[in-house]
Design a protein around this nucleic acid. Structure first.
Lengths: 193, 193, 193, 193
DNA sequence: GCGTAAACGAGACGGTACGTCGGGTCTTTAA
DNA sequence: TTAAAGACCCGACGTACCGTCTCGTTTACGC
């Protein structure tokens, strides 16, 4: 059933130690100073094995981020827009803190340097996260908790923009207070005609 | 007064052709694919001359951006918060469009890769622009055009966050409509207690 | 009798297609540009199968050479030193021409690069061929067709040296004329006290 | 006069330490086990510098050989064919002994693996050495010390063939005795009609 | 004017990392 | 047990840029 044809199967330990290595190295050196060579060395894996499975450094980081769970905060439906929003943003902000902040910043930087990666990052990562929040807001609008004239896409963009600005500029902390402030802001705008 | 001691003076043509080269190359290849080597070649200048005057690629881009004018939009005082805000954001958004968008995105990416540059970018570029907008809002508050409880720093952050998100993600255009939408948003939040 | 124990028997077609592949590839690319990888690919055989039966590229070439017949020219005894010599050298020169020249040159090159192979090549290939000619000369001496002071080993060495020089340097053709010229030379020296 | 234009001049120490490194490494490891990487490392020179000046390993060896003096034995004219021949072959054999034997064998091997190098080796190294001996023999013939029917090219080929065979096969030593034996042989053949 | 001195172009230098290739080995499924 | 397939670790390949270092040359200034 799980037969995968002939040939030596891919080494799962190798895969995981590469992901661990990239996370560790970026935390220690910063994305820009991490090389494919160093990743392979740190992971105890040959360069060839790295290149066999990932085309670029950014692709490894992306997989490491997805692996570390922190999947998109599931928009559990509490029945209240306000509560849903608070919960979603708290989870999202928490997931972008600490070690992950470095990885996320690195990905956004990589997207500016590599057009091919930018495309996959935009549609495969950013857009999916925007969509999750948009559906949350849509539910609120369907329940009549929002001015019908509200521009949902703009509100979603505003929330993620604020989050990314703190990730990239790092002049203010990411925390519960920030998440709640953001939720209040979105709610205020949603209710204003 | 203009005495600069003995020795051959710095070549202004060389300086300008480096700035032109970096702008041209980033537009054509993208920041990540541009090398110091290529900049010198394209500018018809020796590598040494480049390194004599700029420590990093990012420093050249920063100077090219300042050179191309587009200084911080001067917050001319019209007497009305609404009008000031509209004017400021329209100018700022316009200055971040087109060719400059690539340069700005490159700078933000460089800041993620190089901690030393990040510091100077944060305090010398981003903070100064935030300050300009903050003073504009402060004037409005002093004139009583705003709820006294409004969090000015947060509003400023929100405006620039939205701008940077579009610069970096490029999923929606930067334009007059976006600037006005942003101005309206800030104003709404400023008036809501 | 032909029982070779349990298990799948060695594939004769695989063996032959490896030998054919190595001959074909060396003719097309030259020994140095042929890789084990390419041999396996060209032969339609897995790399493991190649390594299971031959330790090195040179070993394959050596087997290919022996396979292609051209065993040591048998020193048929005509009763005359002159005729024996002529016949032996004509056959030997002919066997070193054309496609085999490339293979022989490759073997001599491999012997310079790999000491282990050099040893087996020296004693298992070169020495056996020298011995064949030496015995031919010895028969002539026993029959009194040669000055008793003649240094047989030196004459043998001279003949093969001339042959190998043409194989390796390729500035003059290998042919019947060359073989006869060589035979005359050896005979002249054998007769001169 | 010796002006070499602008730019940093080539480093003579670097050049010489590369030549020394290649000689040392080949003596220690054998030509086949020496890599460009190891040459650069041993010479304390960057790989780029090696590749800037020599296209292949063989080219370095060739230059090292010419550098180590041992230029073609100058065919000083003693007035006697026999004496000239003896002197020439003694010098030539001596120059092919010891450390140089490894280098020469390596060059001949490289010529079998790389067609481009083969060409330059054949015409730039081997042919020039054959020519020197040919001129020596020609002088002898002009003085009437040789049968007029003698095939000079064949005699030259025979002498160098014998030398190369010992270099490559290494079954007998290169020494004064061998050189004299060779001289006697050539002389005998030159005198026999 | 004439020397001093800095900036300039050219380009070689020691390095580091790139992305690829091939070497041998190992691990799977199929015959 | 052998075979095909193909992943594995390893190390070298030849190239691209890095930032630095000589060179010879040019262009100001101050004596």
């Amino acid at each position: 059933m799980s037969s995968r044809g002939p040939g030596r199967p891919r080494s799962e330990p190798a895969r995981q130690s590469v992901l661990a290595a990239v996370t560790h190295l970026i935390g220690r050196e910063g994305y820009g100073r991490v090389t494919m060579e160093a990743i392979a060395r740190e992971a105890g894996v040959s360069k060839q094995t790295v290149y066999r499975w990932w085309p670029t450094k950014a692709a490894i980081v992306l997989e490491a981020l997805n692996e570390g769970a922190a999947e998109i905060a599931p928009a559990t439906d509490t029945g209240s827009l306000s509560a849903d929003l608070r919960r979603f943003l708290r989870r999202t902000v928490a997931g972008a803190d600490g070690r992950n902040a470095r990885l996320l910043a690195a990905l956004m930087a990589a997207a500016q340097l590599d057009d091919a990666f930018a495309e996959s990052f935009r549609t495969g990562f950013l857009a999916r996260r925007r969509l999750a929040l948009r559906e949350l807001l849509q539910r609120g609008r369907d329940r009549g908790e929002m001015a019908s004239s509200a521009d949902l896409d703009f509100l979603v963009e505003l929330a993620f923009a604020a989050l990314w600005y703190r990730i990239l500029v790092r002049h203010q902390p990411l925390g519960r207070h920030f998440a709640d402030q953001l939720a209040d802001t979105v709610l205020t705008l949603a209710l204003t005609p």
